[in-house]
């Protein structure tokens, strides 16, 4: 398994663990994020969870959710998202060697879905211990599993409400060594010990 063959904590190994977690799952998760804790052995210093890495898989039934695609708001929002993506794309392409994976305009001009956008803006977020779903999971040392539009919308956590606004129906945060693993889906997925065990196996490593 991945956990046995990759003993070291690095970006590549983290990405493979996130992939292994949702590519092999029966449920259709749209993404997995590892929120990395800044904490050290000094327990007096408050820890912050920041972006460690993420794997975006996408939604299975994307076409079902395109009801409002002709509204003016939708068009304006898409223009904004594509503009941001275009800028990010040129920044990334600019630092890569010529021909080494620059992304063409076709990909940028394709609709940027709500789930993709939620994943992208997640990269700008961080959570103090006890704040937001990931921070709360870390603070309580127990998994948080929120299924259903109403539960997400009614959550005290801004991130859960934001997820619901972008069409997600399930969001899960599972604490692990040095951070929190978060998964999101546009489907209704109910709590399973299978996923918890997988996270325990794949992410309980020490830096």
């Amino acid at each position: 398994g991945v956990g046995e063959t990759m003993p070291f904590f690095n970006q590549e190994s983290l990405q493979q663990r996130l992939q292994a977690l949702i590519d092999g799952a029966r449920e259709s998760w749209a993404y997995a994020i590892f929120w990395q804790s800044s904490s050290t052995s000094d327990f007096a210093t408050p820890s912050v969870l920041g972006w460690g890495d993420g794997y975006y898989k996408g939604e299975e039934n994307k076409n079902k959710r395109r009801a409002s695609s002709s509204s003016a708001n939708f068009v304006a929002e898409q223009e904004h998202r594509k503009k941001v993506l275009r800028e990010l794309n040129s920044l990334i392409s600019g630092v890569q060697a010529a021909g080494a994976g620059s992304v063409g305009d076709d990909a940028v001009d394709e609709e940027v879905t709500d789930t993709e956008w939620f994943f992208l803006i997640s990269m700008t977020q961080s959570f103090a211990n006890g704040n937001g779903l990931p921070g709360l999971a870390m603070y309580s040392s127990s998994p948080i599993w929120v299924t259903g539009t109403e539960k997400l919308a009614g959550s005290q956590c801004e991130r859960a409400r934001q997820a619901q606004g972008f069409g997600l129906q399930t969001i899960v945060c599972i604490p692990s060594a040095n951070g929190v693993v978060e998964l999101g889906s546009t489907e209704l997925i109910f709590e399973s010990s299978d996923l918890m065990n997988k996270v325990k196996y794949l992410f309980n490593f020490n830096i």
Binding site: Q11, G52, Y56, L88, I92, G101, D106, A107, L120, M123
Partner: peptide, 26 residues
Amino acid sequence: LSAVPQARRASLARFLERRKERVVSA
């Protein structure tokens, strides 16, 4: 871009590259 931490930059590059693959294969 140098202000963007390495982890996010790598994740972003990967996301954009995979998005391109999804669009091409669609």
